[in-house]
């Protein structure tokens, strides 16, 4: 159960990003969680909701995209979805597999209120 640490890292990174880019209030944080990331989406949401009430992200929604494992066979080049964590090529049975997707633990993007920005522009 390290999702609380992960949630804390997300909050810290987003707060830094807000400051760095001088962003208006953030409505949504979109994260990508790979099936191989060892992070449970529900536990992450729980952790996130537990630590955000006293931060500038109190009303910010956490949007989680779960990424299944996608791999490529090093022997024959076949690309395939890894099911049940069996890392073998369905075509040639080789175990020499490169993971293409599924290890993500990323902050993808933020959705911010831009009404304010628009008003500023027209002023």
């Amino acid at each position: 159960m390290h999702e609380l640490s992960i949630a804390t890292s997300i909050v810290e990174t987003v707060l830094q990003e807000i400051q760095r880019q001088n962003l208006p209030p953030v409505q949504t944080i979109a994260v990508r969680i790979g099936a191989l990331s060892s992070v449970d989406p529900e536990a992450l949401r729980f952790g996130y909701e537990a630590i955000t009430p006293d931060t500038p992200l109190a009303n910010t929604k956490l949007e989680i995209e779960f990424v299944p494992v996608q791999a490529k066979c090093r022997a024959c080049g076949q690309e395939f979805a890894v099911e049940d964590f069996v890392f073998a090529c369905p075509l040639c049975d080789s175990g020499q597999i490169e993971v293409m997707r599924g290890e993500e633990l990323d902050i993808a993007y933020l959705e911010v209120e831009n009404d304010k920005l628009n008003t500023d522009d027209t002023d």
């Binding site: 992960i6 890292s9 997300i10 990174t13 987003v14 990003e17 880019q21 962003l23 409505q27 949504t28 994260v31 633990l105 990323d106 902050i107 993808a108 993007y109 933020l110 959705e111 911010v112 209120e113 831009n114 009404d115 920005l117 628009n118």
Partner: peptide
């Protein structure tokens, strides 16, 4: 209205 701001950063 909202706007998407790309971050693309690893959490860790």
């Amino acid at each position: 209205m909202s706007e998407k701001i790309s971050v693309e950063k690893k959490v860790l």
